[in-house]
Design a protein around this nucleic acid. Structure first.
Lengths: 199, 199
DNA sequence: ACGCTACTTGACACCGTGTCAATTGACATT
DNA sequence: AATGTCAATTGACACGGTGTCAAGTAGCGT
């Protein structure tokens, strides 16, 4: 798809994404988006009836562009539960910085806009499914720590891997991305993988 | 202080706090606060020059009202590092629901208002000091896991205990407060306390 | 030449924050 | 009783950002 003839809608989505990424989700106004897409602010509303709707559409566009699905393949095809957990953290943890701009914008909108809240919650639910799958795999291997039942373990993993936590550790604490990934992997192992005598 | 003659300023702060608590930090406007304090919106600006300033003043008022300091005594006087860690999590974890309203409002403001960001960061820095102290005590006892150097451990504990994580676990996942506290204690032990042969 | 569609232009409404000038009412001073 | 001061009121207005509307225009296919 997409010859040298990108549709206006696509240009808008691209513009939104660019600005959101550049500004780390900070104050991207309809005017800015319009300007960058090379149209009028009012014309935006011919394609998206609301700012929230535009942002939501942008998340979908984003997933298509970045290819979430492919990234999750290693996790799904992992042999053992522990490997699956590692691969999932690796995949999601590497994805966060790429979606951070839009995530931030959506998160900010979440408090006031129901549609945005729903959009965000949907995506987080998808990510939660991944957590559940990883925990489930661990459990099937009999490697899940008896400290937490599977559903609770999934809640914990889901929370550990939240965008907010990524933000706090990398941006506020200044951790490099690499360190974030490695630490979260080791943390997750320590929390979820049952201790064995041989290891 | 405070006979049957509470000053207007105090009535404003009280009103702000009440609304913030009731609305869980959601959309509390200057108009609402004024109404509840029994004055005009404009009169608010005779006491606080800006919404951000009012919110910041409210956090200070809040700490005075709720008595943070006293709550931290058990943590500071704990005999062992592990006890200190436990006591700190207990104290802070119990405090979060009480400050959640104002925290949410401040957090929302953080993205756009520098003063609010600073106010919030200051308070979080104070809480971080507590994390560092707990980790330090653990380290002094030679009980800190060798997985993480102390500063990194403090980053992790600080992140674990964030308001956002509390929000996610209790509000989104529906955990009761009690469960939140207990789980965080056990998580922290598992992550930070070195395994011993005898235990 | 016709009409359709996508887009532009310019104006306007709504909301919430912040500002200003003029006024009122209560209290203390002299 | 007249004066001044201080806190608060009233009513108006500016600003920024979103969303809406009506009228006009440019390009395209038939």
């Amino acid at each position: 798809m997409s010859s040298d003839h990108p549709t206006t809608r696509d240009r808008i989505l691209k513009a939104t994404l660019d600005l959101l990424e550049a500004g780390q989700g900070q104050g991207v106004r309809m005017t800015d988006i319009a300007k960058r897409a090379g149209i009028t602010r009012q014309a935006l509303y011919l394609h998206f009836s609301t700012r929230a709707e535009l942002l939501i559409a942008t998340t979908l566009y984003l997933d298509a562009v970045k290819g979430v699905e492919e990234r999750l393949v290693p996790s799904r095809t992992a042999q053992t539960g522990v490997e699956r957990l590692d691969a999932f953290i690796e995949a999601w943890g590497s994805y966060i910085p790429e979606i951070y701009g839009i995530a931030k914008a959506l998160l900010a909108l979440k408090d006031t806009d129901d549609a945005a809240a729903k959009a965000w919650d949907d995506r987080m639910q998808a990510m939660r499914d991944g957590c559940e799958a990883a925990i489930g795999a661990l459990n099937r291997d009999n490697m899940l720590s008896r400290d937490h039942p599977p559903d609770q373990a999934a809640d914990i993993l889901w929370t550990m891997l939240s965008v907010r936590n990524w933000e706090q550790l990398t941006i506020e604490c200044g951790w490099p991305q690499e360190k974030y990934i490695e630490t979260l992997k080791s943390l997750a192992r320590r929390v979820f993988v049952a201790e064995t005598t041989s290891n």
